[in-house]
C-alpha cells in the first residue's frame, strides 16, 4: 500500500488552521465578518471534497487554495454591478485635473512635490502606514483587488486579468490610475 505524504484530519482543522485562514482572508478583504464567513465556507466546501484530497500538498496549502478561490469570488462580486460605476467614476474624477488636457503636462496644483516619504524614523513610518491604509481603502473595489493581487500575492498579470475579467490594456490603465490616486492621496494627507 502506498502511504500518503500528507494526511487530512477535518476534526483538527479549526484548532490548527482557522486563525491562519482568517488572517489570510482579512488582510485581503479587510472586512471581519466577511472574513469569518469565508473561513467557515472554506471548511464546509473542503469537507465536501475531502475524498478528492490526494495528499500532494499539505492540508494547509489545500485549504488555502480553496479560500483563495473564494476571495477572488468576493473581488469579482464587489467589482461588478452598479456600485462599480459609482466608485470608479468618483476615483477617475479625482484625477481628472492632474494633467493639462491639451499636452498631458502635470497641472501646477497637482504636481508631485517631495514630502516625508523617505523618512526612516519608525514613528513617522507608523503614522505614514495609517495614512497609506486609509488611502488604499478609498480606492474603487476593482482597483484595490487588482492592486492587492499584484502587490500581496505577486500574481502574474495574465492570471489577474483572467480571474477578474479585465483586458491587459485595461489592467495597465487601472494600475496607472491606482498609483496616481494613491500618491496624490498620500501627498495631500501628509503635508
Amino acid at each position: 500500500m502506498i502511504t500518503k505524504t500528507h494526511q487530512i484530519e477535518p476534526r483538527n482543522w479549526v484548532a490548527i488552521h482557522a486563525d491562519y485562514l482568517y488572517t489570510y482572508a482579512i488582510t485581503r478583504i479587510n472586512d471581519e465578518e466577511q472574513a469569518r464567513d469565508l473561513v467557515q465556507e472554506t471548511f464546509l466546501a473542503a469537507l465536501e471534497k475531502v475524498d478528492k484530497f490526494e495528499g500532494k500538498s499539505s492540508e494547509r496549502t489545500w485549504l488555502t487554495a480553496i479560500l483563495k478561490y473564494k476571495i477572488i469570488d468576493v473581488y469579482r462580486k464587489k467589482s461588478s454591478g452598479l456600485v462599480i460605476n459609482a466608485d470608479v467614476q468618483r476615483a477617475e474624477q479625482e484625477q481628472s485635473d492632474f494633467f493639462e488636457p491639451e499636452d498631458g503636462h502635470w497641472t501646477s496644483e497637482h504636481s508631485p512635490i517631495t514630502f516625508g516619504i523617505d523618512e526612516h524614523d519608525p514613528l513617522v513610518n507608523k503614522e505614514f502606514n495609517s495614512i497609506l491604509q486609509k488611502c488604499l481603502q478609498k480606492l474603487p473595489a476593482l482597483w484595490l483587488s487588482i492592486f492587492t493581487m499584484k502587490h500581496m500575492d505577486d500574481q502574474t498579470t495574465d492570471i489577474i486579468c483572467s480571474e477578474l475579467k479585465v483586458t491587459q490594456s485595461n489592467f495597465w490603465v487601472i494600475i496607472h490610475r491606482t498609483k496616481l490616486n494613491l500618491r496624490a492621496c498620500l501627498q495631500k494627507n501628509w503635508i
Binding site: P112, T114, D118, F128, F147, H151, K179, L186
Partner: peptide
C-alpha cells in the same frame, strides 16, 4: 515616490 510607495505597500 511611486517606487517607494510600492515598497511600502508590500
Amino acid at each position: 515616490q511611486t517606487k517607494k510607495i510600492a515598497e511600502m505597500v508590500r
